[in-house]
């Protein structure tokens, strides 16, 4: 894959390629965990062609993957880092862009030459949002939320990966407290259902009936519970998910028979 990237940079012309952006673990794309050496190889190519690494920590930041940053989990050394969501536990909207000294210096000089950095929002660092974010970070530290995630995530991962035994599930993926399962029509070949069958949506609906809110991404079902979730609540989550999968299987069989 690093070779693909290098070929693309060369094809585009390295003098035109400014940055590479990635989530440490792809979230809304279906919870895709990279291979262990993936980002080390990617970043070697980026460095060679003076291409900045931007880590999108909007989902992974603040403990989700079992480290404070997803970048630590997958070995990203970002020049720029973006974060939001768990920054304020989402009680109020706030996000942040962190930049390295090497990125900052030319920007600062240009703002001096031009007289101003011509960028900013009415709500940049809104004081109420910032106060809530600060308190959120304090709570993470005082309650050792990262320690809690590390304590409960083996159980989460165990229950997540155990769903592979269900007839509908062809793949399970996850790390820390982020996970997904992929619904397939045929376990052996991992053949997907016809999208018209709406398998993911069926399971999503069945889960809601059992009192469980999940996310269906096509025929993937994703889980990212609040980081405060306990082991017994993790059991409740996956017990309900199993029931939803049973219901989904029954509905899909019925539809196939009809």
């Amino acid at each position: 894959m690093a070779a693909d990237l290098e070929a693309m940079i060369l094809e585009e012309g390295p003098e035109t390629v400014a940055a590479f952006i990635a989530e440490p673990i792809q979230g809304a794309g279906g919870v895709i965990v990279p291979p262990k050496t993936y980002f080390a190889k990617i970043q070697a190519v980026l460095k060679k062609y003076d291409v900045l690494m931007v880590a999108d920590e909007v989902i992974c930041g603040f403990g989700r993957t079992g480290n404070f940053w997803g970048s630590e989990t997958v070995g990203i050394k970002p020049d720029i880092l973006t974060c939001a969501k768990a920054l304020s536990a989402s009680y109020l909207p706030i996000s942040a862009v962190m930049i390295s000294e090497d990125v900052y210096q030319p920007i600062a000089q240009a703002s001096a030459d031009l007289g101003v950095l011509g960028h900013g929002y009415t709500y940049s660092a809104h004081p109420v949002c910032a106060a809530v974010a600060l308190e959120t970070l304090k709570i993470y530290e005082e309650r050792d939320l990262l320690g809690h995630v590390r304590a409960v995530s083996p159980h989460f991962e165990k229950r997540l990966h155990a769903l592979i035994d269900h007839p509908l599930i062809g793949e399970t993926r996850g790390v820390g407290l982020i996970g997904a399962v992929e619904i397939v029509a045929d376990k052996a070949t991992k053949k997907p259902f016809d999208p018209k069958a709406g398998a993911g949506a069926l399971v999503y609906k069945a889960a809601a009936e059992h009192g469980l809110i999940v996310r269906s991404i096509g025929d993937n079902i994703a889980f990212t519970p609040p980081l405060i979730i306990t082991e017994s609540q993790i059991d409740e989550l996956f017990d309900k998910m199993s029931l939803a999968l049973d219901d989904g299987l029954a509905a899909l069989k019925k539809a196939q028979a009809a």
Binding site: P93, A96, Y104
Partner: peptide, 23 residues
């Protein structure tokens, strides 16, 4: 996670990534 220098604040992840492009 690595030495960083400055923070720019926005209100959403979309705005943060938009700002990253602009910067």
């Amino acid at each position: 996670p690595v030495p960083m220098s400055k923070v720019f604040f926005c209100s959403s992840g979309s705005e943060a990534n938009d700002t990253a492009i602009k910067l």
